[in-house]
Design a protein around this nucleic acid. Structure first.
Length: 351
DNA sequence: CGGTCCCGCCACGAG
DNA sequence: CTCGTGGCGGGACCG
């Protein structure tokens, strides 16, 4: 494998105009949704998604895991998920809530009466800084029927730290309490296995928080939560939940800002629907730059250098729409373009 | 400078 | 072994 050598070594040119924001999980999630949230779609291929969105596989796993936890997706098989859509959220949420309530009351020991309805009562003014126990415990109830907590084998020990589980517990936090706003570190504190020993928990906490950021980004891009700034520091997340309830939510109340469900996106995906397939079986994105026919056998070789130029050019010329929907739309095409060009430059879909 | 959080190494389990 | 997953945390980015 002599791939690493001079592949992308190139000169340490400035990758200026690199926008970290455009690479966030939130944006990626939005693109993911706009790519699949259309009628007719029901199968989600991880490879396909990764290619279309112009990101590496690893990132797809991130958003897919949290989306599955909320019922938007369902694991079908290796490399394949089935698209449920936003309509699947209410159901998943209800199940999560029941699961959470069951875990709380079902703890071993009848003398466990941790009321979940935190009564913030009416004591304004003085609040204990340690008043954490307001969301009760609700630790993940493993599938272990008994209280034999011996199965701490490294096997599922890995599982219980999964993004998916963290997501579910995070959501449960909102579902089991009447408060609709939770600060980040408050959530982090509650979601930790508050076992003991604070020493190694520091780093553990930090790691958890990082995951929490990931989850929050995805969740907020789906409008399930909203990030808000309460105090000067400490950001917090407000639960928006299922707007419109399981009822017929033809109209989206919630005068929220980023309500991008619009015809613009619909148009966008219609276009994305029709892709061209080359003889080699490769599926191209929504479009191809004019004057450039599909790639043939060769192409291989040069071209990778100019990729940077195109990207930086596009990034610097990026128009800033005030309209959220338009912005999303543009971003979508941008990604599609970059994905396509990148593929062309590398000229390899066939190792 | 500290809050965010992207990137991708590499462990783990299945085939 | 290869391959699909996805924990995990270094450190780049941003306000």
């Amino acid at each position: 494998m002599s791939s690493s050598p001079s592949r992308f070594l190139d000169s340490g040119s400035k990758h200026h105009s690199y926008c970290r924001k455009q690479k966030s999980l939130g944006v990626l999630c939005s693109n993911f949704v706009s790519l699949y949230d259309r009628d007719g779609v029901e199968l989600v291929g991880l490879d396909y998604a990764a290619r279309q969105l112009g990101v590496e596989r690893r990132r797809i796993y991130d958003i897919v895991n949290v989306m599955e936890s909320v019922g938007v997706l369902a694991r079908k098989a290796k490399n394949k998920y089935s698209w449920i859509g936003f309509s699947g959220i209410p159901k998943a949420l209800k199940e999560l809530k029941e699961e959470a309530l069951r875990a709380i009351s079902g703890s071993d020991g009848p003398c466990e009466k941790e009321v979940l309805e935190d009564e913030d009562d009416d004591s304004e003014g003085q609040n204990h800084d340690d008043g954490d126990e307001k969301f009760s415990k609700l630790d993940n109830a493993s599938s272990s029927g008994n209280h034999i907590c011996k199965a701490r084998s490294a096997t599922d020990n890995r599982k219980e730290k999964s993004l998916g589980l963290l997501t579910r517990n995070f959501v449960k936090l909102f579902l089991t309490s009447d408060v609709d706003t939770i600060s980040l570190d408050e959530a982090a504190r509650l979601l930790l296995g508050d076992i003991s020993d604070l020493s190694n928990m520091r780093s553990y906490n930090a790691a958890k928080v990082r995951r929490l950021y990931d989850i929050a980004n995805v969740l907020s891009s789906m409008s399930l939560i909203e990030k808000i700034q309460v105090e000067a520091r400490k950001p917090a997340f407000r639960w928006l939940g299922t707007e419109g309830k399981p009822k017929t939510d033809t109209v989206s109340k919630k005068p929220g800002k980023a309500q991008m469900r619009s015809d613009d996106l619909k148009e966008c995906n219609l276009t994305a629907q029709k892709q061209l397939i080359t003889k080699s079986g490769y599926v191209f994105g929504p479009f191809c730059p004019a004057g450039m026919t599909k790639m043939d056998g060769d192409v291989e070789g040069k071209g990778e250098r100019s990729t940077q130029d195109w990207e930086s050019l596009a990034c610097s010329l990026r128009p800033q729409y005030h309209n959220q929907a338009l912005n999303e739309l543009f971003t979508h095409y941008m990604e599609a373009w970059k994905s396509w060009y990148s593929e062309l430059a590398q000229g390899s879909y066939n190792l």
